[in-house]
Design a protein around this nucleic acid. Sequence first.
DNA 1: CGAACGATGTTCT
DNA 2: GAACATCGTTCGG
Length: 195
Amino acid sequence: MQSLFELEAPVEEVAPRLVGNILVHTKNGRTTAGRIVEVEAYGGQGEDTCSHANRGPTPRNTVMFGPVGRLYVYFTYGMHYMANVVVHPKGVAGAVLLRALEPLEGIDLMQRRRRLSDPKLLCSGPARLVQAMGFGRADNGRRFGTTRLIIEPDGWQGDIAIDTRIGVNGPDASRPWRFCAAGSPWLSRPIRSAK
DNA sequence: CGAACGATGTTCT
DNA sequence: GAACATCGTTCGG
């Protein structure tokens, strides 16, 4: 990723721009990669009741407040990790949750990590893609832009489908902050808003 | 099909 | 003590 895609902008503007780019992770000499097809935006302190950052900094969410271009990994539901790209719009916290990838490279390794062969189930969900890509707690705060962790532009030009975020509650749950590659067969769930 | 639910443990009130 | 940015399985129509 050359210029971090101008990540220092409002998170709801950065999030759709990340769709179509390729997430690349190299671990123990093996590379897995996938096209980002689904993301969600999460805002800063006092801006978004659905965001971990809403109530201010805590031990868990410190990476969200930190420098731009880092990976924010957290643990939830007693068994799952999820990963975000940290965005830094004008000094406030913000992050883009990675919700689904189209598997492109290292699919055999993804299948081993997931203990599944069905390609549709490898990266179509925030906890699934984290497992397939080999992310974990140790990757919280890791910088993008090294050979180990890259977001690669790819010239992808497709339509963005917009929806409300999945699995959140509260006043801001109805914000249209879920951004998907329109028509992609790799989404975690279908687009609902077109109903 | 879709809806319901249990697993499982960290985080914050 | 409750909630949790989920997943995989089971159950019902």
